[in-house]
C-alpha cells in the first residue's frame, strides 16, 4: 500500500498545481500579442490562406526545420538501434498470407491514399493539413502495403535518397533566402512570388517546402514502421 501512497501523494500535489491554473484561466475573447499580428498581416505578408501553415512553414520555419530534424533523427536512431541481421532470410514464411480481398483492396487504395497525401501537403497553404499530415497519409499507404503483402519490402535506397534530398532542398531553400534577400531572411518564403492569394501556386515557397516536408515525413515514417516491423539482429 505504501508503494501506492507516494505516487498518490505526488499526483494529488500535481493536482493542486494544475487546479491553480484551471481556476485562474479566463477564456479568451480576443486575439492578443503576436497572434493578432499574424491574423492581421499573415495573409498579406506571406500569401497563405492557412495561417497555421504560414506560421509553421515561414514565421516559425526554424521550428519546423527542427521538427523535421527530430523526426529524421528518430528514424535514424530507430534504424541504428534495430539494425537487422543481414544474412537471415526474411522470407516471411511464418507470416500468414493476407487475404485476397485485402490484397486487391490495398492495390486499389494505395495509389488513392498516396494521391490524397500529396494533395494534403500541396494544398497546405490553402486548406487544413500540410507536410506532416500528408506525409503521414503516405506512410499509411506504405503501411497498407505491409498488411497486404507480408513479403513487401520498401526500397531503402530510393527512400534514403528521397529523405536526404528533400531534406537538403529544404535547407537549401532556407539558405536561398539568405542569399537572395539578406541575412535575416532564412526560410523566407518570398524568394518566389507570392502569386494570387488562394491559388495553388501562391504563398511563395510554402507549397514547395510542404511538398518536401511531406515527402520527407512520409518516407521517414514509413522507414520507422518498416524498422519496427523488421526482425532484430
Amino acid at each position: 500500500m505504501i508503494k501506492r501512497l507516494i505516487p498518490l501523494l505526488l499526483v494529488i500535489s500535481l493536482f493542486f498545481i494544475l487546479l491553480k491554473v484551471a481556476t485562474n484561466v479566463a477564456p479568451n475573447y480576443d486575439l492578443t500579442g503576436v497572434a493578432k499580428t499574424y491574423a492581421e498581416q499573415g495573409a498579406s505578408d506571406l500569401g497563405a490562406m492557412n495561417l497555421v501553415t504560414a506560421i509553421v512553414v515561414t514565421y516559425r520555419g526554424l521550428d519546423t526545420l527542427g521538427e523535421v530534424t527530430v523526426l529524421f533523427m528518430a528514424g535514424t536512431g530507430i534504424a541504428l538501434l534495430l539494425r537487422r541481421k543481414k544474412k537471415k532470410n526474411d522470407s516471411g514464411i511464418k507470416n500468414r498470407a493476407a487475404s485476397e480481398i485485402l490484397k486487391t483492396g490495398s492495390k486499389l487504395l494505395v495509389p488513392i491514399i498516396t494521391m490524397f497525401g500529396a494533395y494534403i501537403f500541396i494544398n497546405g497553404h490553402l486548406s487544413p493539413g500540410g507536410g506532416f499530415q500528408g506525409g503521414a497519409a503516405i506512410a499509411s499507404a506504405v503501411m497498407l502495403m505491409f498488411l497486404a503483402d507480408s513479403s513487401f519490402k520498401i526500397n531503402h535506397k530510393v527512400f534514403v535518397l528521397i529523405e536526404s534530398f528533400s531534406g537538403i532542398f529544404y535547407v537549401l531553400i532556407g539558405v536561398l533566402g539568405l542569399v537572395i534577400l539578406g541575412a535575416d531572411n532564412f526560410l523566407d518564403n518570398r524568394i518566389l512570388p507570392l502569386g494570387t492569394f488562394g491559388t495553388i501556386l501562391s504563398a511563395g515557397t510554402i507549397p514547395l517546402i510542404y511538398t518536401l516536408v511531406g515527402l520527407k515525413v512520409g518516407t521517414e515514417l514509413a522507414s520507422i514502421l518498416d524498422n519496427m516491423k523488421g526482425e532484430l539482429e
Binding site: 492557412n50 497555421v52 501553415t53 494534403i120 487544413p128 493539413g129 500540410g130 506532416f132 499530415q133 503521414a136 497519409a137 506512410a139 499509411s140 515514417l221 514502421l225
Partner: peptide, 15 residues
C-alpha cells in the same frame, strides 16, 4: 484546429 486534428488523427492516433 483542423490542422492539429489531422495531425493527431494521423500521427498521434494512427501511426
Amino acid at each position: 484546429a483542423p490542422d492539429v486534428a489531422m495531425t493527431e488523427a494521423a500521427i498521434g492516433a494512427g501511426l
